[in-house]
Computed example of a mutant assay.
Amino acid sequence: MGERVSTGIPGLDFMLNGGLVSGRTYLVKGAPGTGKTTLAMHFAMAGVHNGENVLYVTLEEPAENLKADMMNFGFNLSDLHFTMIDATPTAERYVLMENFFESFAESMDKMLAAIKEQFKQRYYHRVVIDPITMLKVATKDDIEYRRSFLTFVKAVGRLKTTVILTSELQRTDVEEYLVSGVIELRMFELQGKLARGIRITKFRGSSFDGTIRPYKITDSGIVVYPDHVLPLP
């Protein structure tokens, strides 16, 4: 089994028996507002804290908005180890590297080519694509998307980097089958109050805690309570 990589969330690392297995691709899924981007940013910032290079591709939330939102949690997105690509529809251009621009949000293959180009400049220990939903919606042919996604997972595996993909779609059959692990974020109404639950539904190559555990989004980000059980309705 490979080296463990911290998610940056102690309670989630505990559920994963020490963290993610390095060099693999993982899916974080959940409805809007569940904290997928915040979880992905914990993962990214944990790498930065370790002195690792991190590549973060934002496909939905413009970079400036993301920087402002994440500052509220104390995340510094200006660190030299952190590289962000703004591929949102509102971005006037998509910055991949100095003097090189290309629009790639509409295609998984273009996304892969762009990431490979980045790796020619320097090695990235961690990569985040947030959310993969945008690429899936833009691909009209399911068979083509399946082929592209399989190619993507194999290719980033060869780059020996640890990848987190986020998704808002409830049906993520193809993605869940091909990735090494799936973390699901859910919201419930319990006794008239909003409750949040996190569950690991797949974690290839390791044992894990498959119980749904409560979590909160606090001033310092996500806190997972691995010794508590969510009383489901």
Score class of each variant (00 low, 15 high):
Met187Gln: 10
Arg146Gln: 07
Ser206Gly: 12
Thr201Glu: 05
Phe149Pro: 00
Tyr177Gly: 02
Asp142Val: 13
Phe149Leu: 04
Glu168Gly: 12
Leu178Arg: 09
Tyr177Trp: 10
Ile164Phe: 14
Lys140Thr: 07
Lys154Ala: 15
Thr172Leu: 14
Gly157Ile: 03
Val156Tyr: 04
Asp173Lys: 03
Glu168Tyr: 06
Leu159Pro: 02
Val174Tyr: 05
Leu185Ser: 05
Ser167Gly: 14
Glu189Asp: 15
Leu185Thr: 03
Lys160Arg: 14
Gln170Val: 11
Ile183Gly: 04
Ser206Arg: 05
Thr172Asn: 12
Thr166Val: 08
Asp141Phe: 10
Ala195Gly: 03
Thr161Pro: 05
Thr201Ile: 03
Gly192Leu: 13
Glu184Val: 09
Ala195Cys: 12
Asp142Glu: 14
Arg186Phe: 14
Glu184Asp: 09
Ala155Asn: 06
Thr166His: 10
Gly197Ser: 04
Gly197Leu: 03
Lys202Ala: 08
Glu176Asn: 01
Arg204Thr: 11
Ile164Val: 01
Ile200Gln: 00
Ile143Gly: 11
Met187Leu: 09
Asp173Phe: 13
Leu185Ala: 01
Leu165Trp: 00
Ala195Ile: 03
Thr201Trp: 12
Glu184Ile: 06
Leu150Pro: 06
Leu190Asn: 15
Leu190Trp: 08
Gly192Met: 00
Glu176Ala: 13
Lys202Thr: 02
Ala195Lys: 06
Asp142Trp: 15
Ile198Asn: 05
Val182Arg: 02
Met187Pro: 02
Ile198Lys: 01
Ile164Cys: 07
Thr151Gln: 12
Val182Tyr: 07
Arg158Trp: 11
Lys140Arg: 12
Ser207Cys: 13
Gly192Pro: 01
Leu190His: 11
Leu159Cys: 05
Leu159Glu: 04
Ser207Thr: 14
Leu185Pro: 01
Arg199Glu: 14
Phe149Tyr: 11
Leu194Pro: 02
Val174Phe: 07
Arg199Gln: 07
Leu194Trp: 15
Arg199Gly: 03
